[in-house]
């Protein structure tokens, strides 16, 4: 026993030598082969012209080629709209089951539902929405037959910006619920009591204490939602068959065949996306750290 304890202790105390690092070598090797090399390849290729020389042209073209600029614009708009919409709805739902006074049993039901919904995406989700508010959809019919409202006459189209946003929301707001429920649990009862005790009304408590405390979590979660929508491909492809020009769809087209007539530009487009995702993740982590520091 003493022997074992001593060996363990020695290994902890001194700086780990290369032999200790060997323990995670398989993992690192895997990550290099199937994550870093592929990413690096895209990265170097986006700085290479068709003849194999270094160039910044591809990066410059990202900002000038209307086809690409529009794709980014559209992706950013859809991601922002669904992050905001899904964020607000998700927050309100998480609020309802945590501190909103609903029965505790509803909480675990909602969490399970949210786990399912945030993972229910891609082709089945697209089909589900076609069956719901497609031209012959369930809701479309109900609205037409009982409310005399034909949404397709009023410019709605499931295969458009609005339609895609509606579909994305389906996995966006449950994700928000999953992130915000624990954050709302983090609101201590004593804060509310202390605030009341000092004379604050419920509104004042929310405005001055609860909401500011939650704000970094809310923003962080919304950034995560943004990235979640920005990187989505399967759902959009299944729904529109590639007819909506968001970044992931255009990259997909570029993989299938060189639609940009410039492979380097395709790589640059992919890298541009990675950069945006990285910024989102960094923003999320920063806000997360801020909250954790507060709530320590």
């Amino acid at each position: 026993m003493a022997q074992t304890a001593l060996t363990l202790k020695k290994n902890d105390g001194t700086a780990a030598n290369w032999r200790t690092w060997l323990g995670i070598a398989p993992f690192l090797l895997f990550a290099v082969l199937f994550l870093f090399l592929p990413s690096l390849r895209l990265f170097t290729a986006s700085f290479t012209d068709p003849d194999g020389n270094f160039t910044l042209n591809n990066i410059i073209q990202l900002f000038s080629e209307p086809f690409i600029v529009n794709a980014y614009k559209l992706s950013i708009q859809i991601s922002a709209v669904t992050a905001l919409g899904g964020g607000i709805l998700g927050f309100l739902m998480a609020y309802a089951v945590t501190v909103g006074g609903l029965p505790r049993s509803l909480r675990s039901v909602l969490i399970t539902f949210s786990g399912v919904a945030s993972n229910f995406a891609g082709v089945p989700l697209a089909f589900a929405f076609v069956a719901t508010i497609g031209r012959q959809g369930f809701i479309t019919h109900i609205l037409r037959d009982y409310f005399g409202l034909n949404i397709y006459d009023h410019g709605f189209n499931l295969y458009s910006f609005a339609g895609l946003s509606l579909v994305y929301m389906y996995f966006q707001f449950p994700l928000m619920v999953l992130i915000m429920a624990p954050a709302l649990d983090g609101l201590k009862r004593e804060w509310r009591e202390a605030a009341e005790n000092l004379g604050a009304t419920t509104a004042q408590y929310w405005l001055r204490v609860a909401f500011p405390v939650l704000l970094p979590s809310i923003l962080g979660a919304m950034i995560l939602l943004f990235g979640n929508a920005f990187g989505a491909y399967a759902t959009a492809y299944a729904l529109t068959g590639g007819r909506i020009g968001i970044v992931t769809i255009q990259i997909g087209a570029q993989i299938r065949g060189d639609v940009l007539y410039n492979p380097g530009l395709g790589y640059a487009m992919a890298i541009g996306m990675v950069v945006i995702m990285a910024i989102s993740l960094a923003g999320y982590s920063w806000l997360q750290a801020k909250t954790e520091r507060w709530l320590r």
Partner: peptide, 17 residues
Amino acid sequence: MPFVVPAIILVFGLIRI
């Protein structure tokens, strides 16, 4: 990292390598 490199980018890189 998979949050930063979504599936579509990952498969792009894998194919190229």
